[in-house]
Design a protein around this nucleic acid. Structure first.
Lengths: 207, 207, 207, 207
DNA sequence: AATGAATGAGAATTCATTCAT
DNA sequence: AATGAATGAATTCTCATTCAT
């Protein structure tokens, strides 16, 4: 009878894949995709190079999965807020605020995820990320327009602009890197959220 | 007697340098930085590889200069509008509209200049680009706030968000690639400008 | 008490070993030695990779054994004919015809066994194969010369040439791949046999 | 005015390509395709690895050209004899004898060219080699049959068998590697030629 | 001053073999 | 005994930069 895979083995197996993904995320957060080489990744994850190729068909696939995983997590957070209760402006503010706080928390990763390009396959994943984020925000806008909580507007353009404002404001090179007392970025976030809400809302309506 | 550089030689030199820069811009516009290799550039510019290194110390410097040159031109256009007459909202709308139209006209170049990164040195140039663009817009905002044509707001954040809205809305992955009858993008531009003005203006005030 | 290997275990072991060899033969017949990788073999034989290394010290040894096994079978067939009754020319024609028919039946395997080389160790096995085949044919020739059924000739060279004619005519790159109505290759085989017999026989003597 | 390429430079340039091809041929002759690695080739040819890729698009192309070059030379020799004067049997004997003598002179290369496989692209070249050789011999046969110097026979099969006899007799593992006093292989060659002529000729007719 | 052949460090990927379970 | 995840040496190919002519 063939050997039965024990739970212990299962744990190690899953562990390797997770460890590789985790190390890859860390590598990207620290030095961008440019620094993320297979040999370096193997070293950080403490596995052999071959092990990486046992778990992922190619470097591009691996990093595309990193992007997808991070993006799925972030989009999920935003989507949950979009689907929650409250007025559309409230939900929009909440979504932007939460996304922003999370992005600021890991600037390196966010920066790589948003601006730094790499292999075409990875860029595809990043594109999907932005689309998904845009769709989630567009959902809030559409809903708000129906409920007359937002004025009629071009939802497609507005959601793209919201994403742009958010990303550029947060991690783009224009983002103020140090704002003195605003160490946790709370003020920065509120300023961005205010900008975004003004852009889509009736005047006077604030979340 | 030491070799005296004649005007004729100067002219040829300048010609080669310009031709290299021009070809580099074209190469980037067509295929992004990824496709912009020195050998390809030499072929397009019809100079030898060595000639490129006579005029530029390294590939990074060369492409940094490409970014700087493009960006100087664009920032100059925006700055001139910022310094012209009229109300701040009018000037802002005008600046955004003009920038947008130019960017749409050469999507490939704009995309590479804004989205696709490459060497750190080139990124530095792009950073300066965005900063300069942001400063020009911030100037209009500051001026408008002083004149009470814009409400008080965080000018630094707002200008970053304006740039982000503009870029993402125009050439980012979320930008609608084809909008049917809007072949020249006029409608798209107006929608973006409207978004931006709402974001920074008193309600009801439109350019 | 020391572990006693039971017949049951022996049977299973033999089963695995046979299954590996059989799958290896199939793999080689389908895609040549180039496609025959250990992991693929393990998959086809439905055993673990480690199991292969339990039965064979190395990949080279394994495939050398594949070659040996196939070759032993083929040489055995030819040898039996060589040792049967009849005139030498009859036996030679019979041997060539039988060998040819078998080779045509599994072109992929024959081709790999004869043409496509791989590891030196495998080549050794193939060398022994050809030698053995040559010896069997040389036996018929020697016998026939003694009985004056064949003219005196360099038996060693002639048997090598016979093998070469046979292999190149049948499965080499010059072999006609499809000959219209000759789907089973009967006509091709007869043409080759005729060539070979003319090459070693008295003129006018035909099998 | 751009630099004029001097003859000296031309010589070095042509020299590098030729040196690479020559070293590649030598590497193959010594250790077969298996030993012919790019790094080893660069070392032997005394050029950098990059230089090899400046002259050849890939390893496969390079070695395919090696095979083609060698084969073109050999086929040319045979073709010239095929097209020369004399009876068909004489020309056939002459062609086989000349080819054999040349092959024996560089056994290592001949062996690699004939039996050892490598990349598919290289195999393609070898296939063309055999076809070209077969066609040249088939030409002599067809001509000879028309002139009634050879009996009617299946020319396609016969030429394949001739090629097989020749190659197997010469460099196949059956070829006697050391034949005592026959150090230059003259006796071996004559034995092979005799075999081949008997196979295609009227009895009694000898070249 | 102009040229482009030459360079080689660096990066991704493959696959036979090992060994802990 | 059986397994298959893990390993890493080995190999091909790229491309910015140099330098003899």
């Amino acid at each position: 009878m063939p050997y039965r895979r024990t739970d212990r083995v299962e744990a190690r197996l899953a562990g390797a894949r997770e460890r590789i993904l985790h190390s890859a995320r860390q590598l990207v957060a620290d030095g961008g995709f440019r620094q993320a080489q297979i040999a370096a990744l193997a070293g950080l994850a403490e596995v052999g190079i071959g092990t990486i190729y046992r778990h992922f068909p190619s470097k591009a696939d691996l990093f595309a999965e990193v992007v997808s995983a991070v993006s799925a997590r972030e989009v999920e957070v935003v989507t949950r807020i979009a689907d929650s209760g409250g007025t559309a402006p409230q939900r929009l503010a909440d979504a932007l605020r939460t996304f922003a706080a999370r992005a600021l928390h890991n600037r390196g990763l966010a920066n790589a995820m948003i601006v730094e390009p790499a292999e075409p396959a990875v860029d595809q994943a990043r594109l999907r990320y932005r689309h998904a984020l845009g769709r989630a925000l567009a959902g809030i806008l559409t809903d708000g327009i129906e409920r007359r909580e937002f004025p009629a507007q071009d939802v497609e353009v507005a959601s793209a602009c919201l994403v742009g404002s958010l990303l550029e404001g947060l991690v783009g090179p224009l983002a103020p890197t140090s704002r003195g007392e605003d160490s946790d970025g709370a003020l920065l976030i509120e300023a961005i959220v205010a900008f975004c809400l003004r852009a889509v809302a009736f005047s006077g309506v604030r979340a």
